[in-house]
Design a protein around this nucleic acid. Structure first.
Length: 704
DNA sequence: AAAAAAC
């Protein structure tokens, strides 16, 4: 056992220790990479795994003696390896991993909905209850009762302050003005309101918004993440949230969110955005990106007030004195590539909009549009959206971007990959959004390929480029394991892994196809595991339900496609399993980034076989970069592959880009580790960019 | 090749 565990807050090292992941060592002469399914093992060997297997069967990845596991179920396993898993089930459940099958009524309910059919519509509507909750609060607390106690109290917030842009735009919220909770209404004739002053607190809402687990980052862990900022007159970074004046509301919500210190990307992005500069930030989710733009943008909106947008909304009204049926003119727009990510950003926005007059909204496909329209009509100052639904809303005349002063493109590279570019251009360039230079634009992207550079050129004005060191892959919080598993052995191997994982841990299993996700979920389900799945063919209601079941721990195993790879912040994911490895390394980095968050320890296990040769080299690079154990067979394969493929290291998606994976400069020849040997001073493939050494072993290429 | 995303 040669892996090193950095920290052990959750006993994960014991779980790791229970799994003999020695394939990495290549014991057995480099051929030791085959996994022996449980039913082919003999019991004695299972207690002496390494020796017996490697010698006789060239097995490097073996399962450790079962008595290292929790005592509850190891007997069951040793009893009958052929059908060992089934024995466990009869005991009512796998060391408490999940309720026995017939207890899991909730699952059946939405399971049947998969594939749509006539069932779909009513259930979707029903599912929209989640959406309702945003307004109604958890547990169906009676709305009006909850709000009443605050009714009218916002009148106290009348203020004589006036901002320069908001002259004439006065207003007042009735019902307490808790726009963050979506329960405020703008009242026409109100005057004297200063958006920078907090509205009255609301205990119920406050609890709802802030009682969840702290999704913030364990900042201390990230101090060594390098950040480089370039561009003209770049404002200095901050070290504390107090180093820049974000106003009373933001500071209060930072405290409520229990954010203590800014993350690296926040330290840089906040002052840049506050000083009204455009920004292109290469940073991945998990780096604190969402707050990095929400805090300064909202802070600026609080300072400036609604400006002309308010009058525009009024003008669009058909009925006097009523707020409904009006076109909304959000002051800020955030675009995200997946619905769940949009929802998550929206949830963050609600926190930072608490006790403010800003009302965040979210629109995305797969959910009832009528409901979303009604929500918009109650007021929308910050809109989070997936592109398709937003275009729909614009064409229906529900949203006008005429006064959108802040535009954020989140996961911009992902959006391009998903074919969003025409829609993004439709939204940003071919409608009424203020042009670059007038609006402020912020783009966040994990990579900086050519396509993103073009977008940056088209959408940004005199921008600052921020390069944040990789969080996911370089994090020592994540132990990365790569094991050779043939397709036919994957399922039994997975069961071994699941059994070795702590019962309270969440395990995220990635597969490559939607069909594969269904099949694997079915398999695990029949094996008695409390699992669910998420992929793009499931109804939106199912997707959100699955995510909720997983987050809450009711279904501690989630089988997912790429839809869940990026951005989703699920605390407590202890193990990410790449049942199928993705074909590009960015996807891999994102996937494993679902674990090891908030400074916790995480484990990522990837099943590798002949089908994954395309990722060999990149995977090796990542493992080396993150100082992970590298299986010798992987190293050999990478070496072989390099001599076979002339195009390795080039991206298919971004052909013509300068790098497959991100802005890293990859050495085009020689040994596979040559690009880590030192500074590359030449070339840059004709882009005239500047090569930065972010870390000793990483290079950043960017265009000024 | 598959995944994601509007109805």
């Amino acid at each position: 056992m040669s892996h090193v565990v950095v920290d052990n807050p959750h006993g994960l090292d014991q779980q790791l220790a229970a799994l003999d992941l020695n394939s990495a060592d290549g014991q057995g002469g480099g051929t030791g990479r085959r996994y022996i399914p449980p039913h082919l093992r003999n019991k004695d060997a299972s207690k002496n795994a390494g020796n017996a297997y490697s010698a006789g069967r060239q097995c490097g990845y073996s399962v450790a003696p079962v008595n290292l596991y929790s005592p509850g179920w190891d007997n069951g396993r040793s009893n009958g390896f052929v059908n060992g898993y089934h024995d466990n089930r009869s005991n009512g459940g796998f060391g408490g991993r999940g309720p026995p099958r017939n207890d899991r009524g909730g699952r059946g309910a939405y399971r049947g909905n998969r594939g749509g059919g006539s069932f779909n519509q009513p259930l979707q509507n029903a599912g929209f209850g989640t959406y309702e909750n945003k307004d109604g609060g958890w547990g169906g607390a009676p709305r009006d009762a909850a709000y009443n106690s605050f009714g009218g109290r916002t009148d106290r917030n009348k203020s004589s302050f006036f901002n320069d842009r908001g002259a004439g735009s006065r207003g007042r919220y009735e019902r307490g003005g808790f726009s963050g909770g979506g329960n405020s209404r703008w009242v026409e004739d109100a005057r004297d309101d200063d958006w920078s002053k907090p509205t009255a607190p609301n205990e119920r809402l406050e609890h709802e918004l802030f009682s969840g687990s702290n999704t913030g980052i364990n900042f201390e862990k990230y101090d060594d993440i390098p950040v480089e900022a370039t561009g003209s007159n770049c404002p200095p970074h901050i070290e504390s949230f107090h180093d820049v004046d974000m106003g009373e509301i933001i500071m209060g919500n930072i405290t409520l969110s229990r954010y203590t210190r800014p993350t690296p990307v926040q330290k840089h992005a906040i002052p840049i955005i506050k000083s009204k500069r455009d920004l292109m930030a290469c940073a991945q989710t998990g780096s604190g990106k969402t707050a990095a733009f929400l805090l300064p943008v909202l802070s600026q909106i609080y300072t400036d007030g609604p400006g002309d947008a308010l009058q525009a909304v009024k003008n669009s009204g058909q009925e006097n004195g009523r707020y409904g049926r009006r076109k909304q003119y959000p002051i800020s727009l955030v675009l995200a590539p997946t619905r769940e990510l949009a929802l998550q950003i929206y949830d963050e926005a609600r926190k930072f909009a608490y006790r403010s007059r800003v009302r965040p909204c979210v629109v995305y496909g797969g959910a009832d549009i009528g409901q979303q329209i009604r929500d918009l009509e109650r007021g929308c100052h910050l809109l989070v959206a997936t592109p398709g639904r937003l275009v729909d809303m614009m064409e229906r005349g529900k949203i006008g971007l005429d006064y959108c002063n802040y535009l954020v493109l989140d996961e911009a590279d992902r959006m391009l990959d998903m074919g969003f570019e025409p829609q993004i251009r439709r939204i940003v360039e071919q409608d009424t959004m203020p042009p670059k230079g007038i609006r402020q634009t912020m783009m966040f992207s994990a990579t900086f390929p050519k396509e993103i550079q073009i977008l940056a050129r088209d959408f940004l004005e005199d921008y600052i480029f921020l390069a944040v060191g990789r969080v996911g892959s370089t994090s020592e919080n994540i132990t990365q394991k790569v094991v050779w598993v043939e397709e036919t052995d994957k399922r039994s191997f997975l069961l071994d892994l699941l059994n070795a994982t702590g019962k309270d841990s969440l395990t995220l299993v990635f597969v490559e196809t939607k069909k594969g996700a269904d099949a694997l979920e079915d398999f695990l389900y029949h094996e008695g595991y409390a699992c669910t799945s998420i992929h793009g063919d499931r109804s939106q209601r199912d997707r959100e339900e699955a995510l909720h079941q997983f987050r809450s721990g009711r279904c501690p195993i989630l089988v997912a496609t790429a839809v869940a790879a990026r951005g989703l912040d699920i605390s407590n994911v202890k193990h990410v399993i790449n049942f199928d490895l993705p074909s590009d390394i960015e996807e891999y980095v994102h996937r494993i980034g679902r674990t090891g968050r908030v400074g916790n320890l995480g484990l990522a296990t990837s099943f590798f076989n002949d089908k994954n040769s395309n990722i060999t080299k990149d995977l090796l690079d990542i493992l080396v970069e993150a100082k992970q154990e590298v299986p010798s067979w992987l190293e050999s394969l990478a070496y072989e592959h390099q001599h076979k493929s002339s195009n390795r290291g080039r991206s298919k998606r971004f052909s013509g880009g300068f790098g497959a994976r991100d802005y890293r400069q990859t050495s085009g020849s020689g040994n596979f580790s040559a690009n880590r040997a030192g500074r590359n001073t030449g070339g840059n493939r004709g882009f005239g960019g500047v090569l930065l050494n972010l870390r000793a072993d990483r290079k950043i290429l960017f265009i000024l």
